[in-house]
Amino acid sequence: MLASSAHVVRFPFRRPRAACRGLRALTGRTAPTPAYRAAVLGRILLAALGGYAVAALATGLLALVLPMPRSEAVTTATLTSFAVMVAVVVAVFAARSLARATALVLGLALPLAGGLWLAGAFTG
């Protein structure tokens, strides 16, 4: 249950609650602290850059390894890529903490990059 004045939804995780409570005691209302703002900015950057990176790596890898003619593999990989990015963005904001979200993005991006390296995409 949210505080009764909360018509406005604030991002729920990793909020420095003690700081907010202190602020509320002082001013009677809660305002986002710098730490809260930094955490939100971190998620936004991770979602945008990490989401695009994972989608781009997946597209590049699937285009090489899908068992179908080259043009069909490229089309399949490219058409799917936007769903991949949306899924990563949603997962980044659903994760319990920024650290977990970062681990998730790296856990997807690194194996994909490794697969691309094995498939010879970086050797020209």
Binding site: L57, V74, A77, S81, F82
Partner: peptide, 14 residues
């Protein structure tokens, strides 16, 4: 505009 936004499949395979 898929190949504009996500050119990486064309980049690796072609």
């Amino acid at each position: 505009l898929a190949t504009l936004y996500m050119p990486w499949g064309v980049r690796t395979a072609y």
